[in-house]
């Protein structure tokens, strides 16, 4: 079997598929039934607060970790059984730290590229030309620099180059822009776009930053406590999460809040105003995707034990009263 090229047939367009993925460490469930898939050429953002299970998911897909249960398929192969030919079609962008510090940029890329030469096929020549790749990541001037002299951003770009040097069909990026300044971050996003547009590469990228997911991903999956809580394009998610709307007003010196769980809040406001002419300071606020996600992150960071914080509880009670009063 020679390494397969990207099939042209539309029938086989699923690059990643995960069904009912579960991971348990001792008695703690890190993943409890995760199901999703990605098309070829799709950029999938795996979004979630720290500890949601993103890294575990991506490491299972990379073949670095065995799941407790569930079905996993990457390019039609179970990563736990992936051979070296399969490995040659997968790109893993690792966060470098101080490895290969004495090596020079071109030296390391040349060395790693050699491993992909035997997996080259006429329709899919591997690996990338190293000089070409160095130019794409903008390190031509530093091709002979030692890795330990590179800045954080330069090193990250080299990490990407190492991840894609074998011309992979699927690329995994785990929190790739952690610790980036805004400029480097934007450069990095452009690099991801280049990859998916020019090469039709399937990309799975994890992040805890909604803004980043919105910028790079075609589709976002939100993971929370080992479960998928949302899956869709940015527009779909925005619509899904924008359901709840808060209406606030003042009546007789007292502040009232009412949450319209779904649908159009206009009717409620019309009734409210018609019923009571003394209503002032009216506010209608639709929760954005960001609000919903921030609430998720805050809850995850506070931890389950501190979930019910005192001020929140009081506010909620007030809300309930007001709503009830309005019938």
């Amino acid at each position: 079997m020679s390494p397969q090229a990207r099939p042209a047939s539309p029938g086989n367009t699923i690059a990643l598929a995960v069904r009912d993925l579960r991971m348990r460490y001792g008695t703690r469930d890190v993943l409890s039934g995760v199901t999703f898939s990605a098309q070829r050429g799709e950029v999938l953002g795996l979004l979630g607060p720290n500890g949601a299970g993103k890294t575990t998911t991506i490491e299972i897909l990379e073949g670095f970790r065995m799941p407790s249960a569930g079905e996993v398929s990457v390019l039609g192969v179970d990563p736990a059984r992936g051979d070296e030919a399969w490995r040659s079609r997968i790109g893993v962008v690792l966060q470098s730290w101080r490895d290969h510090g004495q090596w020079r940029v071109r030296e390391l890329l040349d060395y790693l590229a050699r491993f992909y030469v035997p997996f080259s096929a006429p329709e899919m020549p591997r690996p990338w030309g190293v000089d070409e790749l160095i130019e794409v990541i903008g390190l031509s001037e530093l091709a002979n620099a030692k890795l330990m002299t590179l800045s954080g951003g330069q090193r990250r770009r080299l990490d990407v180059a190492i991840g894609i040097v074998g011309r992979p069909e699927v690329v995994f990026l785990d929190e790739p822009t952690a610790g980036f300044d805004p400029h480097t971050r934007r450069e990095f996003h452009e690099l991801v776009h280049q990859l998916s547009d020019l090469e039709n590469t399937t990309i799975l990228i994890t992040t805890h930053d909604l803004d980043e997911a919105e910028k790079v991903a075609d589709r976002i999956i939100v993971l929370d406590e080992g479960r998928i809580v949302a899956d869709g394009t940015v527009e779909q998610l925005a619509r899904q999460f924008a359901g709840a709307t808060e209406v606030r007003w003042t009546l007789g010196g007292r502040r009232h809040v009412h949450a319209v769980r779904s649908g159009d809040p206009t009717g409620f406001v019309r009734d409210l105003l018609a019923k009571d002419e003394d209503v002032t300071d009216l506010e209608v606020r639709r929760a954005s995707l960001e609000d919903t996600y921030m609430a998720l992150v805050q809850r995850a960071e506070a931890g389950p034990s501190r979930f019910a914080r005192q001020p929140d509880t009081e506010q909620r009670k007030g809300t309930g009263d007001a709503s009830e009063a309005q019938g």
Binding site: F64, L94, G166
Partner: peptide, 8 residues
């Protein structure tokens, strides 16, 4: 880990 992510 890099060695592991590379075929062979």
């Amino acid at each position: 880990l890099r060695a592991k992510a590379t075929p062979n």
